Simulated scan of single mutants.
Amino acid sequence: MPAQPHKDEEAALSASDIVLVVFDGVEAIDVAGPASVFTKAEQMRPGNYRLHIASPPGGTVATNGGLSFAGTRSLRQLPDAIDTLIVAGGDEPGVRAAIVEQRISDWLAEIAPRVRRIASVCSGAFALATAGLLDGREATTHWRACDQLQALRPQVRVRRERIYVHDGPVWTSAGVTTGIELALALVEDDLGHAVAMEIARTLALPLLRGAGESQLSPTLQAQSAASHRLRELLAWIGTHPQEALSVEALAARVQMSPRHFARAFVAETGCTPARFVEQTRVAAAAQLLRRTRWPQERIASRSGFRSVDALQRAFARQHGLTPQAWRDREGRPADVQRP
């Protein structure tokens, strides 16, 4: 009678092969971010993932930041049964060389029918587009390159404002750090919301953005020309939407008179305190609508609105949708229990 495989061997056999494709000129964060997410997921739920870093020729790959990835596998050495294939992004010469000289898109077109899902981070979308894998699909890339992607491949429905886009077996994400959120979404798709949230906490993410949020963070835009004192206040507002956020309360926090504070806030951020607070609270509510099954009364309270009516009016001003319509469009998590 043949020997039964050890439990660890069974786990190794059942693990899904995750491949991150890199090339000279790749953006290091595009690789390290998703790799860290899948590594944390495997630590929390052993036996689910087996990670590979691969490049067209194999060996050492130089990133655009002076770091190197050593010992990458060549594309031809990868397992036959790849579960998830993620193409990282990088600087334009590096991406172009990978497509034109190393023919990475030809390889993608060949292997795609045998892969459960294919994804890209940032400008990695250009490799997928050149392979024809985005034709007829919604997709995104870094906001600076969206017009270029649309011009290159008119058959693609480019979504300029999305953090990531999921269309059938193809996932694409925006610039750089959104690769972390893409990877968390893939893990959530596999292992559930609770695991993805635990990884987000382990990575000390300030929040887990949904796919439908803008690539350009309102808080970051507001901080760009703000003084150090207001930059810290803007960050604090973003993590404390339930607090009293009147002009008087915010002015007291930065030790300014309400009148001087209101003038300085508009001058440095380009919007009024009330408008910024509303944007922050709507963003917090959107997170809860997507990530929980909570009723709108609880969501309104948790995101700082005094009533469901106030939440609905603010949502309509910013999104042109009711909270329920936004939730229906973005989808509800299947594994989050109603409190």
Rank of each mutant, 00 (worst) to 15 (best):
G320N: 08
A200T: 06
P79A: 09
A12P: 07
P34G: 05
S301L: 14
S224H: 10
P333C: 09
A32M: 07
L108N: 04
A196E: 08
A28P: 05
T280R: 02
T178V: 09
G90V: 03
S16T: 09
W236K: 14
C146I: 15
T202K: 07
G90M: 02
P218N: 06
A131D: 10
A145P: 01
T72M: 02
R50K: 11
S217H: 07
L67A: 06
A196L: 06
Q148A: 15
R144M: 15
A174I: 08
W143K: 04
D309H: 04
R96S: 15
A112K: 07
G66T: 11
P295S: 11
G94P: 10
Q296D: 15
I86S: 02
T141L: 11
S224P: 09
T202C: 10
L20R: 00
I82N: 05
T84L: 12
I199Y: 02
L186T: 04
E278F: 01
T219M: 14
A145Q: 12
G270Y: 06
P295V: 03
A41T: 04
Q223T: 12
T172S: 15
A70K: 14
D147A: 13
Q337G: 14
R327H: 09
G124Y: 00
G136S: 06
G66H: 06
R293K: 10
R293T: 08
T219Y: 01
A267P: 04
L184G: 07
Y49R: 08
A283V: 06
R159I: 13
S14R: 13
